[in-house]
Computed example of a mutant assay.
Amino acid sequence: MSAHSVSIRDEEIRLGQFLKLANLVDTGGLVKELIAEGAVRVNGQLCTQRGKVLRDGDVASVVDTATGSVLGSARVAAGDSGGTPDSEDDLGEYFDEATANDGFDPEKWRNM
């Protein structure tokens, strides 16, 4: 099974966050369980640190501990904001057009 590339906004990301971003797990609690069971590999090596820092090119995998087969894996692709090249905002892939006009006022929240 080949790893699919997952773009991150910065140059590095923590393992637990990356596993969720890459849709290899649903929750942080599940990340903790999988790491405790020895089911998480980084670049083919067993990883026991949820906070391990991943950088561009690192591959994180979830494996079946009974068989050793890879259930899913993803490669870190750093420095891509996910936005369009001519975009001047900092919203990138997090902009949701469906809720863009929902009355949310960032200044109100920023000043609380």
Rank of each mutant, 00 (worst) to 15 (best):
D86R: 09
E93A: 15
S81F: 06
L19T: 03
G82V: 03
D56P: 02
R9S: 11
E97N: 14
D64A: 06
A36F: 11
I13S: 01
W109S: 14
M1D: 12
A98N: 14
A39L: 06
G103E: 11
L46Q: 08
G28Y: 00
A36I: 10
I13Q: 00
D105F: 04
F95N: 08
V25T: 03
L21F: 00
S81M: 11
M1Y: 12
A36V: 08
P106N: 05
C47M: 14
R75N: 06
E12Q: 09
I8A: 07
L91W: 12
D102A: 14
I8D: 04
G16L: 09
S69G: 10
A60L: 03
L71Y: 01
G72A: 03
A60Y: 02
S81Y: 04
V25E: 00
T67K: 00
G44Y: 00
V63C: 07
G82L: 01
F95T: 12
T67E: 01
Q45F: 03
V42P: 02
D26A: 05
D58P: 00
D89K: 09
A98K: 14
S73G: 06
A66F: 13
G82P: 04
E107H: 15
T99Y: 13
D64K: 03
S87V: 11
H4E: 08
I13R: 01
T67A: 03
G44H: 01
V63L: 08
S7K: 11
D105R: 07
A36Q: 13
G51T: 05
Y94T: 15
G51F: 04
D96Y: 10
A100R: 12
D26E: 12
D89V: 12
M1A: 09
A66W: 09
D102R: 15
K52L: 02
R75V: 08
S73K: 05
P85I: 07
P85L: 07
S5N: 09
D26G: 07
M112G: 12
G28C: 02
N23D: 14
L34T: 02
V53W: 11
M1G: 07
R41N: 09
L21C: 03
D64T: 07
S2K: 13
R55V: 12
E97F: 15
S7I: 07
D90H: 15
A39E: 04
D90L: 14
G68V: 05
D26W: 02
L30T: 01
D80L: 11
V31Q: 02
P85Y: 09
V62I: 10
Q45R: 06
S7E: 10
L19Q: 04
V25Q: 00
E11N: 09
S61A: 07
G28Q: 02
V59Y: 05
V70M: 13
M112R: 13
R110W: 15
R50D: 09
S69R: 15
K32V: 05
I8Q: 10
P85D: 08
A66G: 15
S73A: 08
L91Q: 14
L71A: 02
F104E: 09
Q17C: 09
I13W: 00
C47A: 13
Y94G: 13
E93F: 11
N43P: 05
L30Q: 04
